[in-house]
Design a binder for these strands. Sequence first.
DNA 1: TGGTTTTGTGACAGAAACATAACAGTTTTA
DNA 2: TAAAACTGTTATGTTTCTGTCACAAAACCA
Lengths: 227, 227
Amino acid sequence: MSAPVILLVEDEPSQRAVLSYNLKAEGFDVVEAVDGEEALLLASEAQPDLCLLDWMLPHVSGLEVCRRLKSGKQTRELPIIMLSARSEELDKVRGLETGADDYMVKPYSVAELIARVRKELRRTRPAALGEELVYEDILLDAASHRVSRAGHNIKLGPTEFRLLACFLEAQGRVLSREQLLDRVWGRDIYVDTRTVDVHIGRLRKALMQHGGGDPLRTVRGAGYALG
Amino acid sequence: MSAPVILLVEDEPSQRAVLSYNLKAEGFDVVEAVDGEEALLLASEAQPDLCLLDWMLPHVSGLEVCRRLKSGKQTRELPIIMLSARSEELDKVRGLETGADDYMVKPYSVAELIARVRKELRRTRPAALGEELVYEDILLDAASHRVSRAGHNIKLGPTEFRLLACFLEAQGRVLSREQLLDRVWGRDIYVDTRTVDVHIGRLRKALMQHGGGDPLRTVRGAGYALG
DNA sequence: TGGTTTTGTGACAGAAACATAACAGTTTTA
DNA sequence: TAAAACTGTTATGTTTCTGTCACAAAACCA
């Protein structure tokens, strides 16, 4: 499973370097933007999982970037943590009003920032953080890379493991073959779309090896879903 | 018990502020010095448990401070972690054998710095954390540097020892080769990632020399895990 | 129903990931 | 200072996984 991607928007180079380095050390992928323009561009292009947004930016203010991200269709769901140098309560209120999901005042504890990042990602990318994912009698422990069903241990190849993690993260939503290729294989890998079918088959077989019904649902013309 | 006191020697105010803030956030008491003079004074006066020492200092260099601390009777036992801006200097620091207990190159991961601080403190203030790591019949005693399995003493090389300690600390989580290289070999050492495999093999052999199954699990495409 | 589209699946060859032994250079130990 | 222990790399063998294809089965549609 790919590491969560964090969009870091901060104009001051040294601040940016420190944050970037520490985020990378925690295992995140970091995409950096130096101003609002670039931030908005990368937000839709790099498909980040979370955005760290500085309040003070040249040209377009952080507040404005936040507002635009939250009103854009593609980027509405992107969690945003605002970083501000000032502690005035008014700023905080305004930040959260604009739709930011959290707010931190500089100077902040890096440990606390990381903790808040994790808190936001826990909602959207639980598998990437090493959480336990459950659906009925199926249990996937991302940290120890283990899967079991009704108590029986189940051995999965890397691809099937990621596939199952996707379905568990998607919470029953239907995922198209294209979406699965993106998330499981990666964005710029070219493989035949029918290959997904084969791996779905393998995943099904593995999950049913100790009995139990088929937990995967084929949605003709659309893709697959869990449950 | 009172919190460990850390003597932070760093002349640049912003760097000092960041470090101080983060250390305090982790529950340490911080005493700050801006140059070598003050550092030497505070080292004997404030009775710190550990010293974070910047390489570049006005007047008296960090290297010189380190040397003096290590030759002073009262301060000889004070653990020192040197902070250096560039990796070339790191070599010098190492080569000159200043007596520092650990080194970090800027920019560093705050999480890693904290981890190293704890590591040093564990030696000098062992009451802080439990020293024995256990998994099933495997026992690692960090204080005496001993490992045993099912009662049999097991002799491990330094690398295998650290490797096993990592797995015991990770509590069953999968560790990637990169993570292991970071933790066992160090962040800025270049070693082929395949080398990890070899040492895993050696560790396995050592752990199984008196019988018993393989406690290490290979997670294809991801890394290794204990149990 | 018959034809058409979509999905399921077994087989297979090639690729990738991993295990292990051997080796040469280095460091530590006695 | 010689011997022993340790390290990182390389080469080779082994296992496991992948992606594609071909054909079978199922679902859909008129």
